[in-house]
């Protein structure tokens, strides 16, 4: 007799986030698949939580959806209790942790990434494991292609393993400009789509600056 398995294998693709000095980017592909079949080519996985917060959660998609609902509820109660005060990203991140750890022994099968603008005006990326362990990071990838995306971000965002040929010292980390960061996101995903069969169709990019939110779409391969 096989036991009931509460977790399915239906899943959204991959997502990636980069934090800049005055911006934050969250990107994800819009392919949704189960096994070797495509369920949807146009399923956005970036949730707008309000208060300038955006979230992706890769993994089991039913849990991902439930986590977003939980968070929206929490944010709504926060507004009711605090005279519509805007929830900061650091507080939102802690709330996410509480929600995830609250299900310590029946976890949501997801790897969430949250972006927003921090109180000091810098772009913020927070990433979580399924149990709620979290951290603020310069960049993060999650989902099926996370293994393909992450080393590339290390190399191009934090300049890991790069020397400055002039000085022979490790190359100084300078703040990425927005255009470079968007280009990196696109190139990282076109590369991942070449090799990971679950990545493809369309890349959705949410760009957060002090001026507001910009959404861009970019075609990926569809095979």
């Amino acid at each position: 007799m096989s036991r009931f398995n509460p977790y399915g294998d239906s899943s959204g693709g991959s997502s990636l986030a980069i934090a800049g000095a005055d911006f934050a980017i969250l990107a994800g592909d819009t392919r949704h698949s189960t096994g070797f079949s495509i369920d949807s080519r146009d399923q956005s996985q970036i949730a707008d939580l309000g208060d300038g917060l955006f979230l992706t959660s890769n993994g089991f998609s039913a849990d991902a959806k439930q986590l977003v609902d939980d968070l929206r509820t929490q944010i709504k109660w926060y507004h009711h209790n605090n005279n519509d005060h805007k929830l900061s990203i650091s507080a939102a991140a802690r709330t996410t942790m509480m929600l995830l750890y609250g299900k310590r022994f029946f976890p949501y099968y997801v790897n969430p990434i949250m972006i927003g603008m921090a109180d000091d005006g810098t772009g913020a990326v927070y990433s979580f494991d399924p149990l709620g362990s979290y951290d603020r990071e310069p960049s993060r990838a999650a989902g099926h292609a996370s293994e393909l995306l992450m080393p590339f971000l290390d190399n191009q965002v934090t300049f890991a393993n790069q020397l400055d040929p002039q000085t022979g010292e490790p190359r100084k980390r300078l703040d990425l400009d927005l255009q470079t960061a968007v280009d990196l996101v696109k190139d990282a995903f076109t590369g991942a789509a070449e090799r990971q069969v679950q990545v493809g169709d369309t890349l959705e990019i949410v760009i957060l600056t002090k001026d507001g939110v910009d959404r861009q779409y970019y075609d990926l391969r569809r095979d």
Partner: peptide
Amino acid sequence: QPNQRLQKQRNYNFDIGTTS
């Protein structure tokens, strides 16, 4: 050939001497 790779946004050639 319906799935040709698109042109990359950037060129990732490193400066000579980047790797120690």
